[in-house]
Design a protein around this nucleic acid. Structure first.
Lengths: 203, 203
DNA sequence: GCTTTAATTGAACAATGTTCAATTTATATC
DNA sequence: GATATAAATTGAACATTGTTCAATTAAAGC
């Protein structure tokens, strides 16, 4: 009944997380159960508890992977000509969300039980993401202090997050015909000081 | 075992929703179970299914109540001098969220299963909320078309929502020391065309 | 009082997260 | 190569969940 090193422990953990990712992609939080993950990698439910403290732990680690993937996409959009960076970042963000809405939703739909805190490695991951964007947008806010720039970036990030969650949960289409992506552009342009939501900073 | 008209059916439904509200206030989605609600009103679990289609239905109706309560608060802040309306609306919004974070979280933490749509009465409730704010902010965006004003309002609303969800789930404090409320003011001021986040529209 | 109708129950079912003693395999030791 | 040790894996078990529904009880109508 018991085997050994079919896969190394690290390998097995990776397999479990990949299985969880597929389930989350297809069915979201509601379909993501310990038994389903175990079944998908051909192990017994109990084995999952050798790899993770519990289901919450597994989900938090999966969310870590998702943050990494998002960082890659935003990183690719953060270079190039500063003038068009905001637009490209917004596009990259919504491309990511719309290409895997259920996986992205898991980032925020999942909440740890009362009193439990996110693990220590979570904060730098998130901070890196924001930092990346803040740095990319620095040339576009030359008149503002570093604190003001950072606050503006966090606000934009939270704003995009808000637009996306409402869009994904179908609560945005209840009140707006405008594409979420377009609202994103509007938000970012305004936050950066433009008057319209149609294009890059005018010269 | 069975009784009758201890309470009229409508009364019973109200009692169940009130019980659910208390549980949600105290423990959020994770503590909100059919059995807990039933126990709290002194009925058997099965009785809940006489009043609601299922737990999802109960939660959606509770969320409807929460939207109504929010509309009352925002409505009270939407009057008075137009110049200070944005600030008062932001304050009212965060007052609401911070006074019942778990109940407010339920609005967005809860997702219906794949394929199920929100009931028909949900849309007008939400639309009324947005409409109320859009109308209140109309004098502050005199140079914009009705569509542009509406888009700006939806964006602000989604943005406040994003800031609040991140704050409530403790993911905002991971990356920002600024108070969520202050980010809210920053967002609204910028969206309305101000350059700083410190006060009402300058004359 | 009897019948009809409606509300309420509680036992039952399938599925969930989680635990853990028992089991099996790999590795180390001689 | 046999034996002992350690590690990984299992699967049965438990408590809890949402949900269903035949049986039961009380009210309303006659």
């Amino acid at each position: 009944m018991a085997r050994r090193s079919d896969h190394a422990p690290e390998e097995l953990k990776r397999l479990a997380l990949e299985a969880a990712e597929v389930i989350a992609l297809e069915e979201g939080l509601r379909g993501l159960t310990v038994r389903r993950v175990a079944e998908r990698i051909g192990y017994a439910p109990g084995t999952i508890y050798n790899l993770f403290a519990n289901l919450d732990d597994l989900i938090v680690q999966l969310n870590g992977m998702t943050l990494d993937a998002l960082a890659v996409e935003l990183g690719a959009a953060a270079g190039g000509s500063p003038a068009t960076r905001p637009q490209r970042l917004v596009e990259a963000y919504f491309d990511f969300v719309e290409s895997r809405p259920r996986l992205w939703s898991l980032l925020f739909e999942h909440r740890l039980p009362e009193g439990a805190d996110l693990p220590d490695w979570y904060r730098p991951k998130l901070a890196a993401l924001i930092g990346l964007v803040a740095e990319a947008l620095e040339p576009l806010m030359p008149d503002r202090s570093a604190e003001a720039r950072y606050a503006a970036t966090v606000t934009m990030w939270a704003g995009l997050h808000g637009i996306s969650t409402l869009a994904v949960s179908a609560k945005l289409t209840l009140v707006a015909e405008t594409e979420p992506r377009q609202l994103g552009h509007l938000l970012v342009d305004r936050m950066l000081g433009n008057r319209d939501g149609t294009g890059p900073e005018p010269v």
